[in-house]
């Protein structure tokens, strides 16, 4: 069955929608267009006013300087490794906990869910100090484990999966499987997970980018430059007084490339939705 529903609505309406979405998409991208454009500007042109969207005298100096003077690719590699592991951990923990909390009603589960959600409310920076002291006591500073430890679970991830599981996995389906003698793990892995493919893909994207943009924690836990992640690496271009805007933009633009590629690849995973997941009437 085609993902496109043949509604019989006129093509005109679709064209109007396309124009509107196109305009909004471009509006969303405008600040980023400036960012990419800044990456190719000379220091003089960066100061020029009004700012130009297309550089008058495009230069590769910023890019070259960034690649020559900083371990940019090393940072990107570190970040990909860190983000991949964090994503795997978060998707696993969220899938399990989200499913259980959505589909099993046991006394205390409401409290557990409420507590998990409440932990998301406190900004990470606030409880970073005790967590840091814990990681330090465990001797995990400057290790991947130390970095990862704050990113093994995601309150919003459990919440997200729970919310989807409530509607996307019909209770009758689980019940029928039990009647057929299926074990609970089997039901979780073979019935629930396939139905949650879209949400899990979306969660994967969110978890990946949460790690990708992590800053406060890697800064203090992985304090060594070559062990750093991209977001902290980018911060090295700033000082209290001046910003190396050209280089900062060049580095940020390079870092955007894997982000966009990753999103495009992952997107294919979760756009199919229920129609493609094998569940039909």
């Amino acid at each position: 069955m085609s993902a496109e529903r043949a509604t019989g609505a006129s093509g005109v309406a679709d064209r109007v929608i396309d124009v509107a979405l196109m305009a909004i998409s471009f509006a969303m991208l405008t600040p980023l267009a400036f960012l990419v454009s800044n990456a190719f500007k000379t220091p003089a042109e960066l100061l020029a006013w009004p700012p130009t969207l297309i550089p008058d005298a495009p230069t590769l100096d910023n890019l070259r300087a960034v690649i020559r003077e900083t371990p940019l690719f090393r940072w990107i590699f570190n970040t990909i490794a860190f983000a991949t592991l964090s994503t795997a951990a978060i998707v696993t923990t969220s899938a399990v906990a989200g499913y259980v909390l959505a589909k099993f009603r046991l006394p205390g589960f409401g409290l557990i869910f409420g507590t998990i959600l409440a932990t998301a409310i406190i900004p990470f920076e606030v409880y970073m100090i005790p967590l840091y002291l814990g990681v330090q006591a465990a001797g995990l500073l400057n290790t991947l484990w130390g970095l990862l430890i704050a990113y093994l679970v995601m309150s919003f991830g459990i919440f997200l999966i729970r919310q989807y599981a409530m509607t996307s996995i019909p209770d009758e389906l689980i019940e029928a499987a039990r009647v057929d003698g299926a074990g609970e793990w089997w039901i979780f892995l073979r019935v629930a997970l396939p139905l949650m493919r879209g949400p899990l893909g979306a969660l994967g994207v969110l978890a990946f980018f949460q790690a990708w943009t992590a800053f406060a924690w890697p800064l203090v836990v992985a304090a060594k430059t070559e062990a750093q992640v991209i977001e902290v690496g980018l911060a090295l271009f700033q000082t209290g007084f001046t910003v190396e805007l050209g280089r900062l933009s060049a580095a940020a633009a390079v870092a955007l490339v894997p982000s966009v590629v990753f999103f495009a690849v992952m997107r294919r995973n979760f756009v199919r939705g229920v129609a493609a997941s094998g569940m039909k009437e």
Partner: peptide
């Protein structure tokens, strides 16, 4: 509604990317 169209991927990406871009250069823009 436009999911069948080729442009859907572009729309979705364009609208999502601001969420993941490094904040400092974006805020400077």
């Amino acid at each position: 509604h436009r999911y069948g169209s080729r442009l859907a991927g572009f729309y979705e990406t364009a609208i999502f990317i601001p969420h993941v871009v490094s904040l400092v250069p974006a805020a400077l823009a």
